[in-house]
Design a binder for these strands. Sequence first.
DNA 1: CCATCTTTGTGCACGCGTTCACAAAGACAT
DNA 2: ATGTCTTTGTGAACGCGTGCACAAAGATGG
Lengths: 280, 280
Amino acid sequence: MATGRSTQHNPNPAAGTRRSRGRGIPDATVARLPLYLRALTALSERSVPTVSSEELAAAAGVNSAKLRKDFSYLGSYGTRGVGYDVEYLVYQISRELGLTQDWPVVIVGIGNLGHALANYGGFASRGFRVAALLDADPATTGNVVAGLPVRHTDEMEEIIRSERVSIGVITTPPGAAQQVCDRLVAAGVTSILNFAPTVLNVPDGVDVRKVDLSIELQILAFHEQRKAGDEYRDEDEAADADAEVPSAPAAAVVSTAGRAVEPGRGHGNERGQEYEEAAG
Amino acid sequence: MATGRSTQHNPNPAAGTRRSRGRGIPDATVARLPLYLRALTALSERSVPTVSSEELAAAAGVNSAKLRKDFSYLGSYGTRGVGYDVEYLVYQISRELGLTQDWPVVIVGIGNLGHALANYGGFASRGFRVAALLDADPATTGNVVAGLPVRHTDEMEEIIRSERVSIGVITTPPGAAQQVCDRLVAAGVTSILNFAPTVLNVPDGVDVRKVDLSIELQILAFHEQRKAGDEYRDEDEAADADAEVPSAPAAAVVSTAGRAVEPGRGHGNERGQEYEEAAG
DNA sequence: CCATCTTTGTGCACGCGTTCACAAAGACAT
DNA sequence: ATGTCTTTGTGAACGCGTGCACAAAGATGG
Ligand SMILES: NC(=O)c1ccc[n+]([C@@H]2O[C@H](COP(=O)([O-])OP(=O)(O)OC[C@H]3O[C@@H](n4cnc5c(N)ncnc54)[C@H](O)[C@@H]3O)[C@@H](O)[C@H]2O)c1
Ligand SMILES: NC(=O)c1ccc[n+]([C@@H]2O[C@H](COP(=O)([O-])OP(=O)(O)OC[C@H]3O[C@@H](n4cnc5c(N)ncnc54)[C@H](O)[C@@H]3O)[C@@H](O)[C@H]2O)c1
């Protein structure tokens, strides 16, 4: 869901594969494998030999049936009546996720967030190696962050090729993100983790995942508003909707008026557009 | 607002099983509204008066039919033959997301990541106000970060109550996350954005969203491995998979051997329909 | 006023993902 | 070996999300 390209729906089912026969592992399952892996690693550190699907599911915060079905896509790695062997499952999931090999990554844009990521220990702990830190600002290049020198983006292509980097992390301002993305892709990067609030345009074959703090907060705000609204009804806010809509055009007003018959549509808060400029 | 609205245009006769969601707006739609809002804000800054669903969908990186259906959950805010009024839609989405009001948030754990978030301008730009920065380490409390003093977690409950904070951001080490979460919830926080790689346990009524960099990278690695595996088969890895299994128990090894016979299940490298064309 | 053109709003079908529920598989005791 | 007990693996049903395709709505022009 977070990935830019869905690539799932082929209007032509000519392949004939009806079910999950020749198909790979469902995206939803792949997204949960790291969760299982984390829980299993914790068990492994405590030298727990086996776990049942029920226990592991609880640790991972999912339904046990879902967990079993997820594992069934990987193969039959459990033992009925006993459960799953922790070490073995750690290995299988690691292999399935491609964590048995080394993945060099570059981080582009060593500002506030780039600093934090560079210092993050969780990178190296799972086979992700920071191959380089890149920035366009001459004032920051040369600085040493987390033991690595910040190098200028002029060197991007060379580094990506020589280090065989296939994963890039973008932590530049939004205005530079697409441009940086294009350069990364042109240099050979085929997976991008984007922290900038921008919709990246990439060719087929390139995966983009985005981490957007602002979106997460807004989703929380939506539910928060709903919780608050359920307690005391918004009587005061429902009345004067149409009057205070900011610059509602004729067409839209008509549309609103036609709908004004139904109660509870508007919201009297006059600060309609408080939010001009996004980060820029 | 929920009540008055849902009574109106609901051509669906089977209202019994449907409408399970109290509000009516699907989660998937809610998750996209911030995306639309961002695109609309950009248009608004360029003084674009109206947009068609096609244009806006392109800007937001989604399907136009999906966008129209999403908007249909909010109401009929478009004009056929013309499109949507930008300013009006900005207002409607903002209101729907609850961004017309102020949301004070606290950030707990002012380390690398907490620093970055505190300095992030995108917070305030959408109605999210950092009410306080909290940390348990006496060495960091008292420091001024992004113009705000870091306060000790002893003050957490008092701050949350006095500032009416309902959203908390956790950027502590994973071991402290659950404990911090419990305190936040006990103090009145009902929405949590968790950056620590931990499964948080919360009572009903509390929303948790997680941002997990490690998981995102692992998902990218999975797809990356699949792409690489398509080019040249992973002969070396597939061959000695069993051999390198760390402490694989007898039962599990047998299970693996039995499965190795069937094609297409164990590894996901049989070139499915995803990522077809360009990938090279 | 009528014709045409554009674009919305949505009915519908389809496929993915989730969950239930249970037979089969294996451990373990006797 | 046989029976019992635990837990897996999965068939099947269902709900949700997505995208197609089209009728209706409204703008626009004559
Ligand atoms: N800081 C956060 O907590 C946070 C949260 C969510 C999203 N973001 C997003 O992450 C991005 C980075 O945020 P930040 O706070 O670190 O910003 P920042 O301004 O501190 O850092 C941006 C860095 O990118 C560099 N840069 C600019 N243009 C570049 C280019 N073309 N090539 C390479 N480097 C370039 C700058 O020199 C700077 O060092 C922004 O898009 C922001 O919206 C940040
Ligand atoms: N830095 C990153 O880029 C990054 C990326 C992904 C995830 N994370 C996760 O985010 C969290 C923070 O990462 P970080 O790099 O900022 O770590 P950090 O060690 O730099 O900062 C953690 C901060 O939390 C404070 N803290 C510890 N226990 C606390 C408690 N009980 N109450 C309040 N504050 C407490 C510490 O004093 C410290 O200031 C970690 O869980 C990490 O796994 C970080």
